[in-house]
Write a protein that binds this DNA or RNA. Structure first.
Lengths: 148, 148
DNA sequence: TCTCGGTGTTGTACTGTACAACCATTCGTG
DNA sequence: CACGAATGGTTGTACAGTACAACACCGAGA
């Protein structure tokens, strides 16, 4: 039980430390795409296009926030809005070719960074870590609450 | 090797998802202390008082940012600035009694939240997760780069 | 003593975010 | 069918967190 508490203490502290620094580091490493923009583009690619409302729900962000973020991405030529012919309220968002390209570049840079940082880890340790994170995030998102 | 890449992909994605949501969730769960304020107070408690410059270095934040954060904490009565008698340039920062109290409350709330979220984990799994995070963050901070 | 380096504050600007008010469109029910 | 409710989105406004640059203050060494 003492061990449990100690481990939880560490997990709490390290997750917090990580969260605190993530944004700034992301911005430093690829200034052309903030952490938020990156996740939005990723989602669009993964989903093959979706509505602003879907993004808001998935990331629990306000629709106004999404509206502005998407506006910026559109202005940057990374995303385009297509009026849904079957429902004129909705704009379906799609990556442009340029968006696909930039997303790929940043994804690649990120992958390299992670690979460097995890270079010394062996396969089973990586697997275990990945498993822990999945389990943790799954519990956090299902529980409605997230971190701290 | 394919397994390695898969695991790294997952780690990358899950760490990102976590980072993106951390701040907002922290704010929702204890509005009286933002994630940043919390880490600053924690550091002060851990160190038993330190200078603004130390905080800036430790968290790689600009000194102006620290100045304002500390200013807010001081106005809130959680921190006090003592002029160092041996060097009148520096202000040594200390938690006030109220600061200690609030920090303890929030720490407690956080611990409970983490314990709930990790309730179903057994001891060895927790230990392994904690170990992974320590190892990851250590590499990240020594490498100068952080996440993504 | 004079200048330089360390410590901190203040002015300014930008990003990400929320909330509320609003507009346009669609849907469901009397 | 028509009108009120719901849905999707944008805009106005405000605030937190952050950086950078300019500045002011103190202390230590040439």
């Amino acid at each position: 039980m003492a061990d449990r508490d100690g481990s939880i203490e560490i997990i709490q502290r390290e997750m917090t430390a990580f969260a605190r620094r993530a944004r700034a580091t992301a911005a430093r490493m690829h200034p052309e795409l903030s952490l938020v923009s990156y996740t939005l583009l990723s989602h669009l690619e993964y989903q093959g296009g979706c509505r602003a409302t879907d993004l808001a729900a998935h990331y629990t962000l306000d629709k106004s926030t999404i509206s502005r973020q998407v506006g910026a991405l559109e202005k940057a030529g990374l995303v385009e809005r297509r009026l849904d012919p079957t429902d004129h309220r909705v704009h379906v968002l799609h990556l442009t070719d340029r968006g696909i390209e930039v997303l790929a570049q940043v994804t690649d840079a990120r992958r390299v960074a992670f690979q460097e940082r995890l270079a010394e880890w062996n396969g089973p340790d990586l697997e275990k870590f990945a498993e822990c994170l999945l389990r943790y995030n799954d519990a956090a998102s299902r529980g409605g609450m997230d971190i701290e």
